[in-house]
């Protein structure tokens, strides 16, 4: 028996919008810790890891660990039928091949339930060790989104370099080149508007902009984004989900041939 009641149902809607273009099918894992997902894109270049902690749900019942395979496009279709202010409850029964999404309007005058077929998915779970990163950049998520979008109109890849001067995003394409440098800026009205650069050592890595642009679909989930870089590791782009957990995207770097 599984019953997860999420008062801020819009969070789940936003999570689906952030993941459905990167991953087609995924197993949602439910345990005492929370509701989580780990899935790679079809080319095994990018990975999404989601955690919504059990404490973030108004009601969280998960009698035993369960994994539910879902087609994210179909799940998104169903969640789009929920209002932005709706409370969403996810229900499942042991051994059932369906999951139910129940939507309640804030004043309880409309209650809907949508039953979706589950699917068997061979999960390819990767072990991601805790790592020390050479540099961690925290910046407004809208700014990161803007940079990725702007640079992708010039080139296909971006070089992200962190030095003591700041973080530089560079691209080149047929029409020319572009460089955007963001310096640390803590003198802002709100902490989420700050750009904070923690650097242990300089790092420079190349990434496909197509994937970074896809990650920025998580922008509505958080005012700020954290980009963690190490020369021997995939980049981690993390959006914190208020009081609940996170959505993290991992992207393997490109290397010079």
């Amino acid at each position: 028996m599984l019953e997860l009641r999420l008062v801020q149902g819009s969070l789940l809607k936003k999570v689906l919008e952030a993941t459905k273009d990167l991953v087609t099918d995924a197993n949602f894992d439910c345990s005492a810790t929370g509701f989580s997902l780990q899935a790679m894109d079809s080319s095994h270049v990018a990975l999404v890891a989601l955690l919504l902690r059990s404490e973030g749900f108004e009601h969280y019942r998960c009698d035993r660990n369960i994994s539910m395979g879902m087609n994210l496009n179909n799940m998104s279709k169903m969640l789009k039928c929920a209002g932005n202010d709706d409370i969403i409850t996810i229900k499942g029964d042991d051994g059932s091949d369906t999951v139910t999404f129940m939507f309640e309007s804030p004043n309880q005058d409309k209650i809907s339930d949508f039953e979706m077929k589950l699917m068997d998915i061979d999960s390819e779970h990767l072990g991601i060790p805790e790592a020390e990163y050479h540099a961690i950049v925290k910046m407004p998520s809208s700014e990161f989104q803007r940079i990725c979008k702007d640079l992708s109109s010039i080139g296909d890849t971006v070089v992200i370099s962190v030095t003591k001067e700041g973080v530089k995003f560079s691209t080149r394409g047929d029409i020319g080149t572009a460089n955007i440098v963001c310096r640390q800026n803590k003198t802002v009205d709100k902490p989420e508007e700050a750009t904070i650069i923690e650097m242990n050592e300089p790092v420079s890595l190349t990434f496909a902009l197509r994937y970074l642009n896809s990650f920025t679909k998580a922008t509505p989930l958080s005012e700020s984004v954290t980009v963690s870089l190490s020369s021997e590791l995939p980049v981690v782009v993390e959006y914190k989900i208020a009081d609940m957990g996170y959505i993290r995207f991992y992207l393997a770097p490109k290397i010079e041939d």
């Binding site: 095994h44 270049v45 779970h125 990767l126 072990g127 890849t157 991992y250 393997a252 290397i255």
Partner: peptide
Amino acid sequence: TPMQNDLGEFFAMV
């Protein structure tokens, strides 16, 4: 053009 790495080169399957 730089070559694209695969995540499997960094993280092991569990």
